[in-house]
Nucleic acid binder design. Structure first.
Length: 821
DNA sequence: ATATACACGGATCCCCTATTTCC
DNA sequence: GGAAATAGGGGATCCGTGTA
């Protein structure tokens, strides 16, 4: 029976039938039904031919290749045909054979058999079937299509696939047409979270599982029974796992979301299901989650997109956040203004005595609720990035932005008739990783001082615009001289970039233009959240382009392009600085793409005129923007030496809005006391232009420190454990504390924030690490340490700008107070 | 394996020299 | 008096965390 449906693709999978690959795409219809679209495309790769082969030679080669077939344990794979094409590879014209094979999985094996001297390179073997399918059939994720085809209903086609997948409609696609109107789509999301009595995967038991969706709240437990309406009591761990699967099926979500669920919840569930000898059959085809190998485990559920929200936030979203950690609690606080519930479950309380289970259940549910609300909030961003990149949601939500950038390039090569470069081999990666660092950004050493009337300017998407303007990429780069080209240096050797536009600079130029348009449209219609998300998504991709070309894992790795981007950026910012100076502005500071000048007796208008002139002379699409005018700004000296410190300054604008960069205030490895004190002092000085109140405030803080009036929580120092304990060559205080925690039986893992405070010691020579205690260990905080190693270093340089010596103040007071004892 | 370089600053490490301790 | 242990200074290195 032929039918027509409106369809939005959400999850992509593929299967083999009679030795051939088929795509199986799960999505929704415009009536909210779950649909499965079966479709196919031919698998192929390219053989790039050596130059100067004549037609006869190529024909002969074609015949030899077409005769190849291989048989492995599973199936016989054949080469269907080999077509001659004119293509481009890295911008150069090449003659190629497009080699079609019966099964994508056997491409490497077949390519291995093709070892003829006429062939220079084989490419696109590493384009997976789903990516190939999306490119060929243009069925892009999260767009609406009209699909025409045969409905499969208890059909024997494809081995009866329609009855093995739990969907409302299964259709064998014949015609796919992109709809020109956007139908409404809101994914059905279910969030989940588990609580266990051991942290190690599968070691302990799952105490409870919470689920949260629209009008759907549940906590499944086999522990103490509860009368709470959302709690369901069962007899065993086995039962709650089964029930979990059942509820997921019943709720029928497009997305199952967790927080760190790739690394914890899903593998834990899988491990416990195995232990209980039951199936964790979450997939629409009743399959169990599939976990990828390797360091960063991912858990895939067939037909339902499993999203680990933490991964997306870490890779893409974190740059919009202020949070110091990406814990569910902190991110929720910032984005939702909601927090986790306060509940301290002690996993060492093996008897499980005195546990307030009702509170525990509420806590568990709240975690799912927060996860649900978070993904609802940032769905629009995930959606826009996915639509732009065109890879499946499952992948995009987990990829780093560099990898997303690469996927964007691959999905857009067709318009340049380009064949994709291959992924680097391990030996390429090893070589690339060994390379020396290249010179990076220009940072001007500031002269310390408190400045009035500061003009701040910055280049918009500087590295991106440099790559486009100077055509920097692998395919446009040459070590041999090119006449009339862009010339830079890499390791003292000249590098040339042709002016014939390369596909990466062209693509990047397009994205920058698309972003400009989206931003402009948004500015005219600030209620349109989609435009904002789109503009942000483009920005993220633009910013990844520079790092991508210098990233050892990139297909289009080009260290010369990366280093040249830094080179041309330096050239241009130095030129812009000269222009400001020529017009009589005193330079205060500059870092990479930003310039701060002193207006002195000049007007803002005069500064803007200089800006206009600079922009007239900038190459290509480069552009310097006004960031803002500030009524005051402070730059300080380094702790060692009397030079101005780079990457450390604070500004205040006319509306008393303060911007602090680099100071201890914004660093999480300083205690709250120090950070707050410095923040206050900067605020006083910036607002008032003198040190009077700042000094009074500081004196009061010092007094409080000496009287031990500072609460412990303000004295806690937090440092992240970046690697496992054994790897440390130098044992800092946080390492000592981490070792202690491990001895106590607490979980200690790389990535954890270690908390401690510093106490007094009779031994004058005791190291800081020997005086560090865990926050819950009683002790007297070391007044001297907090004054001299925390407060003093944070405020000394600020007061020095105003010629006040703080060391004396701290010392004098100390002598006085010693007399008090 | 999971973008780049530049930069700050605390704490430790490590070497050197001076001083103290011990026989 | 001389060898060994210890103290202390200072630069190098490690480490974590920022800016861009």
């Amino acid at each position: 029976m032929t039918a027509k449906i409106n369809f939005i693709p959400i999850d992509y999978d593929y299967f083999d039938y009679e030795g051939k690959n088929y795509a199986k795409i799960i999505g929704r219809t415009d009536t909210g039904k779950r649909a499965c679209v079966i479709d196919t495309t031919e698998a192929y790769f390219w053989a790039i031919l050596k130059k100067n082969l004549n037609d006869k030679q190529i024909k002969k080669l074609q015949n030899r290749i077409e005769a190849i077939n291989i048989t492995n344990r599973v199936r016989t794979s054949k080469i269907l045909r080999a077509e001659v094409h004119e293509k481009k590879f890295l911008g150069r014209d090449v003659k190629v054979l497009k080699i079609f094979v019966t099964n994508s999985k056997d491409m490497y094996d077949i390519a291995h058999e093709i070892n003829f001297k006429e062939i220079e390179k084989k490419r696109e073997l590493d384009i997976n079937f789903i990516t190939r399918y999306i490119i060929e059939r243009k069925l892009n994720p999260l767009n609406w299509y009209e699909i025409t085809g045969d409905i499969l209903n208890n059909s024997t086609e494809f081995g009866g696939i329609d009855s093995s997948v739990d969907v409302d409609i299964c259709i064998n696609a014949d015609k796919i047409i992109l709809l020109n109107k956007d139908l409404k789509f809101k994914p059905k999301i279910l969030a989940y979270d588990i609580e266990t009595d051991e942290f190690e995967i599968g070691k302990g038991e799952i105490l409870m599982i919470s689920l949260y969706g629209e009008n759907f709240k549940k906590v499944l437990t086999w522990k103490k029974s509860s009368k709470k309406d959302f709690v369901e009591n069962y007899k065993s761990e086995e039962e709650i796992i089964s029930k979990f699967c059942e509820y997921v099926r019943k709720y029928n979500p497009d997305i199952l979301a967790g927080y760190f669920s790739d690394g914890f919840d899903l593998p834990y569930l899988r491990a416990r299901a195995e232990k209980n000898r039951i199936k964790l059959n979450l997939g629409l085809d009743n399959s169990q989650p599939i976990f990828s190998k390797g360091n960063l485990r991912t858990g895939k559920i067939r037909g339902i997109v499993h999203i680990d929200l933490l991964r997306f936030i870490r890779n893409a979203y974190s740059q919009y956040l202020q949070s110091e950690t990406l814990s569910l609690n902190e991110v929720s606080k910032e984005l939702l203004e909601e927090e986790k519930l306060d509940f301290d479950f002690d996993p060492f309380n093996t008897e499980k005595k005195d546990i307030d289970w009702d509170k525990f259940y509420e806590y568990n549910l709240k975690d799912s609720e927060l996860t649900y609300k978070l993904i609802e909030k940032i769905w629009i961003d995930i959606e826009e990035i996915t639509k732009i990149i065109k890879e499946p949601l499952f992948k995009v939500s987990r990829s780093t932005m560099a990898s997303n950038f690469e996927d964007y390039v691959i999905h857009n090569l067709e318009q340049f008739n380009e064949i994709a470069e291959k992924e680097p081999m391990p030996e390429d990666i090893a070589r690339r990783r060994e390379r020396k660092k290249y010179e990076g950004a220009f940072v001007l050493q500031p002269i310390p001082g408190l400045y009035e009337n500061v003009g701040f300017f910055d280049f918009s998407s500087m590295y991106g615009s440099v790559i486009v303007s100077y055509n920097l990429s692998l395919s446009t780069c040459s070590k041999d001289e090119i006449k009339n080209s862009y010339v830079s240096y890499y390791q003292d050797k000249k590098i040339y970039f042709t002016k014939t536009p390369g596909f990466i600079p062209l693509l990047l130029g397009n994205i920058i233009e698309l972003r400009r348009k989206a931003k402009e449209e948004y500015n005219q219609n600030q209620n349109n959240a989609i435009l904002k998300a789109r503009s942000n998504a483009f920005k993220l991709i633009i910013n990844a382009a520079y790092g991508y070309q210098g990233f050892f894992g990139a297909r289009y790795y080009c260290i010369e392009a990366a280093s040249s981007a830094a080179y041309f950026a330096r050239e241009n910012i130095k030129k812009a600085i000269k222009s400001f100076e020529k017009d009589g502005f005193t330079l205060i500071y500059s870092d990479t793409d930003s310039i701060a000048v002193k207006l002195d007796n000049k007007s803002e208008e005069q500064a803007l005129n200089t800006l206009k002139r600079i922009n007239k002379n900038l190459p290509g699409i480069m552009e310097l923007d006004l960031d803002g005018f500030f009524k005051r700004g402070i730059w300080v000296t380094k702790r060692t030496g009397e030079f101005g410190a780079k990457k450390k300054y604070a500004l205040i604008d006319e509306k008393n809005k303060i911007r602090i960069r680099g100071f201890e205030t914004v660093r999480r490895d300083w205690c709250v006391l120090t950070r707050n004190t410095q923040n206050k002092i900067l605020e006083f000085i910036l607002k008032e232009g003198n040190e009077k109140n700042a000094l009074a405030y500081l004196k009061d803080i010092i007094k409080k420190v000496k009287k031990r009036e500072i609460p412990l929580k303000e004295l806690i120092i937090k440092t992240q454990l970046k690697k496992s304990l054994e790897e440390y060559k130098s044992e800092g205080p946080h390492v000592t504390i981490a070792k202690k925690m491990k001895e106590m039986g607490l979980p200690v893992k790389a990535g954890m924030l270690i908390e401690y405070y510093i106490t007094e010691s009779k031994d004058k020579k005791a190291r800081v690490r020997d005086r560090a205690l865990l926050p819950n260990e009683p002790g007297n905080y070391d007044i001297d340490y907090y004054l001299k190693n925390q407060i003093l270093p944070a405020v000394e340089n600020i007061f020095e700008v105003l010629n006040v010596n703080i060391e004396e103040i701290i010392d004098n007071k100390k002598q006085k107070s010693l007399g008090d004892y």
